[in-house]
Deep mutational scan, measured.
Amino acid sequence: LTVEVTLDGRRIELHGLSEEAHEILRHALERNADDKEIKKILEELRK
């Protein structure tokens, strides 16, 4: 799955996400998580 997010003013596409990762990010974006929170989530998903 692919998600497009804006971090530090740049639009980035995240490819190859699992369903779980996609859901976690989608929920964070829906509640307008800040860049710091999104980065933390991405860091966790990379593990």
Rank of each mutant, 00 (worst) to 15 (best):
L1A: 08
L1K: 10
L1I: 13
L1T: 07
T2E: 04
T2K: 11
T2W: 11
T2Q: 07
T2V: 12
V3M: 15
V3I: 15
V3H: 05
E4Q: 09
V5G: 02
V5L: 15
V5N: 02
T6L: 12
T6C: 14
L7R: 01
L7G: 02
L7H: 03
D8L: 02
G9Y: 02
G9Q: 02
G9C: 05
G9P: 01
G9E: 03
R10V: 15
R10Q: 15
R10S: 13
R10H: 12
R10N: 14
R11E: 09
R11P: 09
R11N: 10
I12G: 02
I12Y: 14
E13I: 15
L14K: 01
L14V: 12
L14W: 04
L14G: 01
L14C: 08
H15Q: 08
H15T: 14
H15N: 10
H15L: 07
G16C: 08
G16V: 04
G16S: 06
L17Y: 04
L17G: 01
S18R: 03
S18T: 10
E19A: 07
E19Y: 14
E19C: 09
E19L: 12
E20R: 10
E20C: 08
E20A: 11
E20Q: 12
E20P: 04
A21W: 15
A21C: 06
A21V: 06
A21S: 08
A21D: 10
H22I: 15
E23C: 05
E23W: 12
E23V: 08
E23F: 10
I24V: 08
I24D: 02
I24K: 10
L25T: 00
L25E: 00
L25C: 00
L25A: 00
L25F: 04
L25V: 07
L25Q: 00
R26G: 03
H27T: 13
A28I: 05
A28G: 01
A28C: 04
A28K: 01
A28Y: 05
L29W: 06
L29E: 03
E30W: 05
E30C: 12
E30S: 10
R31L: 09
R31H: 10
R31T: 07
R31F: 06
N32H: 11
N32D: 09
A33I: 05
A33W: 06
A33S: 04
A33G: 04
D34E: 10
D34I: 05
D34C: 05
D35Q: 12
D35G: 09
D35I: 10
D35P: 08
K36G: 13
K36Q: 12
K36M: 13
K36D: 14
K36A: 14
E37L: 06
K39I: 12
K39D: 05
K39N: 08
K40W: 12
K40P: 00
K40C: 10
I41V: 04
I41R: 00
I41P: 00
L42R: 00
L42F: 04
L42W: 04
E43L: 10
E43T: 07
E43C: 08
E44Y: 12
E44G: 08
E44H: 07
L45G: 02
L45P: 00
L45K: 01
L45H: 04
R46C: 11
R46S: 09
R46V: 14
R46Y: 15
R46W: 15
R46A: 14
K47P: 11
K47R: 10
K47I: 15
